[in-house]
Design a protein around this nucleic acid. Structure first.
Length: 210
DNA sequence: ATCCCGAGGG
DNA sequence: CCCTCTGGAT
């Protein structure tokens, strides 16, 4: 995508949503981390539905450890991959208690050592809570980056590097949310709504659909 | 490359 | 029925 168009692309998305925020529900940085871990290959709606009850009784790593894996599963069994996620959340909470004083570290490497936390999840937490201009590449952003021509790449890491390179400084902090919301509601996987798309003038995909 | 894995949409 | 959803670990 041309430089001038990249600016217009972000400017347009920003105008449509000046203060973008996560649609995941959370009460603090710990519950944010748990919510993001649970959101892997699941919709935020489904995660919110499960965590609404869970976060009323669990807001700290200690409380999660006390709850235990079996009861945690009862809360999240409506979410895909719940078995693995329950194990990871308990282990991750134990590690936070024993190795980080019960706090969530603002450190990419330390976060990625936690079970169930990879590059994407760590990037999301650092962006949302610690205001670091990371761009976490999930399924939506991977698709939008490739389809629009904004940041093509064979894998998420390639797309992330390209996004960090082409995204102007002023848009970096919120780029993650603008791109994800665009992918979720307009540039959808199955049936992209190009006729309702505000940035179609800058998109490489329109040539194939119109 | 493969497994994990429920809900919702088309 | 098939596809997709803010992936990560092996």
């Amino acid at each position: 995508m041309k430089k001038a168009h990249i600016n217009l692309f972000y400017e347009t998305l920003a105008k449509g949503n000046p203060e973008p925020k996560s649609e995941l529900q959370y009460t603090n940085v710990y519950t944010l981390l748990v919510a993001v871990v649970l959101s892997a290959q699941a919709t935020d709606k489904g995660v919110n539905k499960a965590t609404e009850a869970l976060f009323k009784i669990v807001e700290t790593p200690n409380q999660m450890v006390e709850l235990g894996e079996a009861k945690l599963k009862d809360y999240i069994k409506t979410i895909g991959l719940f078995n693995t996620k329950a194990k990871n959340v308990i282990k991750l909470s134990q590690m936070l208690v024993h190795e980080h004083g019960g706090e969530v570290p603002n450190d990419q490497a330390a976060l990625e050592k936690l079970p169930g936390v990879g590059r994407k999840t760590a990037n999301v937490v650092r962006n949302i809570y610690f205001q670091v201009p990371t761009i976490a590449v999930d399924t939506h952003i991977f698709r939008v980056g490739n389809r629009t021509g904004l940041a093509p790449g064979k894998n998420p890491l390639e797309v992330e590097k390209k996004l960090l390179k082409v995204t102007p400084k002023e848009w970096k902090l919120h780029a993650h949310h603008w791109l994800i919301l665009h992918g979720r509601y307009i540039c959808k996987a199955r049936k992209p709504e190009c006729t309702a798309c505000p940035v179609i003038d800058y998109c490489a995909y329109k040539a194939k659909t119109l």
